[in-house]
């Protein structure tokens, strides 16, 4: 991203501090009003020489159903980069309230595997501030390289929505045609998610956002029950695609209805093969088997 300035942090910021900061900023805004910015900060935050904790890695792999190999799951790298990404959103010059932002979609390109033994340089920035029919959305871009190398191993784009926040000068998109109603296929899997699913993922990902932790903390933030982390759900789907995806792939997910815990989630994975029989991509979609509402859908595909 040209024209941006890089801020090198000494270490990965602590998410808990960021959440406290965010809460404080929210309170300040409530009292003082929005600070009025309509531009995204042109700063890239970077941390160098990050080494993942192998115990935590193993716990993460077990929780989402990956074999505990030496390769970092794509979702684990997302979790690793998450505090740095949050630190950008937590900047004073970031124009939107961090708390209450909704994760709309995520797109990862894993170009080459990352081993837990490797030291990593992680960069994060925000871009593409734009309108949404329900508020304002933007992309958080993170990149992971082996320390000192140029080649991007992992590239992630997370799209967030600040619901109900409309910034001056940013137009709502024209309302697109409503998508066709979702009709659930036969499931290939059925997940039973306990009420502690959010806490369990928080423990391995470090994302202790109160909306995931318990009914009480979720209620404090205006939700009737706690929610499963979107990236937990997407990471499980990625794990379920299995070994066919290899070491290099793209992984998209679009989140729709949130998964309130506890929950039963039905999933369908369908695989598309190339003419020669090689794996081309796996499409997945998850829904509530009782209501039929779609929770999320996405694709894992081989890289061209």
């Amino acid at each position: 991203m040209s024209g941006s300035q890089t801020v090198v942090l000494g270490e990965l910021p602590a998410l808990s501090k960021l959440y406290v900061n965010a809460a404080a900023a929210a309170a300040r805004r409530r009292i003082l009003g929005a600070h009025g910015g309509t531009e995204l900060p042109a700063y890239t935050h970077e941390v160098r020489g990050v080494k993942p904790d192998v115990t935590n890695l193993t716990a993460y792999q077990h929780l989402i159903g990956e074999t505990a190999s030496d390769v970092l799951p794509a979702g684990f790298i997302h979790a690793l980069a998450f505090p740095l990404a949050m630190s950008v959103l937590n900047r004073d010059d970031f124009p939107l309230p961090l708390l209450g932002m909704i994760h709309l979609a995520n797109k990862v390109v894993q170009s080459a595997p990352v081993l837990f033994t490797e030291a990593l340089d992680i960069r994060a920035r925000v871009e593409n501030l734009r309108g949404h029919r329900a508020g304002t959305q933007l992309d958080v871009v993170a990149e992971v390289r082996a320390t000192g190398q140029e080649e991007v191993r992992w590239h992630g784009v997370s799209t967030y929505l600040a619901k109900g926040v409309f910034l001056p000068g940013i137009d709502k998109p024209s309302v697109s045609a409503t998508p066709p109603p979702f009709s659930a296929p036969d499931p290939t899997a059925l997940w039973q998610l306990g009420v502690d699913t959010g806490r369990a993922y928080a423990a391995v990902s470090g994302d202790f956002n109160p909306i995931h932790l318990s009914v009480l903390t979720a209620k404090a933030l205006g939700l009737r029950r706690s929610l499963a982390h979107g990236m937990y759900l997407a990471s499980r789907a990625l794990a379920d695609v299995g070994a066919a995806k290899g070491d290099a792939f793209s992984w998209d997910v679009a989140f729709e209805a949130p998964v309130f815990l506890p929950a039963r989630v039905a999933l369908d994975i369908s695989t598309v093969q190339a003419d020669g029989g090689a794996w081309q991509r796996s499409d997945y979609v998850a829904w509530n088997p009782l209501s039929g509402r779609r929770h999320f859908s996405g694709t894992v595909a081989s890289l061209p």
Binding site: G65, P187, T188, A189, W191, Q192
Partner: peptide, 18 residues
């Protein structure tokens, strides 16, 4: 239940039966 799908064997067979 099958570890990778969470579906019981009966639910799996129900899909095949259908």
């Amino acid at each position: 239940g099958e570890p990778r799908t969470g579906l019981s064997m009966g639910e799996h067979q129900a899909l095949t039966t259908a």
